[in-house]
Amino acid sequence: MSSARHAFSVIRSLDAFPAHLRGGVVAIGNFDGVHRGHQAVLEEAKALARAGNVPAIMMTFDPHPRTVFRPDNPVFRLTDEAGKARLAEALGLDGILSLQFTRSFADQSADSFIETILIKTLGVRHVVTGYDFHFGHKRQGTPDYLKEKASEHGFGVLIVDMKSDRSGDAVSSSRIRAALKDGDIAGANRLLGYSYFVEGPIIHGEKRGRNLGFPTANMALAENSELRCGVYAVTMTRADGTEFHGAASFGRRPTFDNGAPLLETHVFDFSESLYDEVVRIAFHGWLRGEEKFASVDDLVAQMKDDCEKARVLLSQRDIQPLDRVLAG
């Protein structure tokens, strides 16, 4: 690797793969959530790369393979491409290669994946994957197969074992999705190793919050989000890294219109316009479920209570090391 430093790279096409990232260590996986188990894979890749003075990159796929094969039941994604890139950079990698996952991509043979992508395009020195990684047509490429082919072609392979939590269960994206569906933010964040976040532009709403004395910054989440409807203690981070505390409601506003799901964040002690600005909302605690109130006055009284509880929770929250890096 050249001694010159390069900015973190986001590559979406094999044809655009930059020369300065060739010959490095590649961590391969879907990495949805980039949770503690994924981080173990990425840390191994980074360590090998630094020892060999070569770049370390994440190779991932978009959309989620299960969504491609079962489009009528799309996966509730924990992190989109931008989220994975943000986390990969925070973990100290040099870039992310996000390849479009299609049926034709899935149909390529395991040999073609190795020879065309890993060797010809990436010129890999070392590949790091999790214990359950499979690739190629009908998932014929197993970890053992990858090791066998690596020996033939002269690159190294490291397979990282399952990472479990204190319960002894595997840290997995499915467990995190289940926790978020239940509103178990603390449980999800323990498995992630950072505070679950969403990122997107602030859009116009009905301005009801402003009229009630609680103006909100509104964000539309992915249609297949299964985050539990309710009220959360959150932080909002702007592009320049400044962070603000707040309380956010995700749901359909049953007191008013029972409309499309929307994330509405009331940012404490903040009066600037955020329309069209891309911000990050991180979830730190669950406050209550979504409710339909008998009157607007009842709703306002509850919102005041929600904000007080959110302030207390945020003042006492645990800040994980990766949260500090993400905050810049």
Rank of each mutant, 00 (worst) to 15 (best):
S3L: 15
F8G: 03
L21G: 06
I28F: 06
I28H: 05
R36A: 09
R36S: 07
G37N: 12
V41P: 01
L42K: 02
E43R: 14
A51D: 14
N53R: 15
M58I: 02
F69A: 10
F69Y: 11
L87F: 03
L87P: 01
L93K: 01
I96A: 06
L97A: 03
S98G: 03
A106S: 08
D107T: 03
S109L: 07
I114K: 06
I114Q: 05
E115V: 13
I117H: 07
R125A: 15
T129Q: 09
Y131A: 12
F135D: 00
K138L: 12
K147T: 15
K149N: 05
K149S: 10
A150G: 13
S151C: 14
E152N: 11
G154Q: 08
G154H: 12
F155R: 12
F155Y: 15
D161N: 15
R166K: 15
S167F: 14
R177I: 07
R190T: 13
L191Q: 12
S195V: 09
V198P: 01
E199R: 08
I202E: 00
I202Q: 00
G205S: 05
G213K: 05
S225F: 01
S225K: 02
Y232L: 05
M236C: 06
M236N: 02
R238W: 03
D240G: 04
G246W: 00
A247T: 08
P261D: 06
F268P: 03
L274D: 05
D276W: 01
R280P: 01
W286F: 14
L287Q: 01
G289H: 09
K292N: 09
F293K: 08
A294N: 13
C307D: 11
E308D: 13
S315W: 06
Q320V: 10
D323L: 07
R324Q: 15
G328E: 12
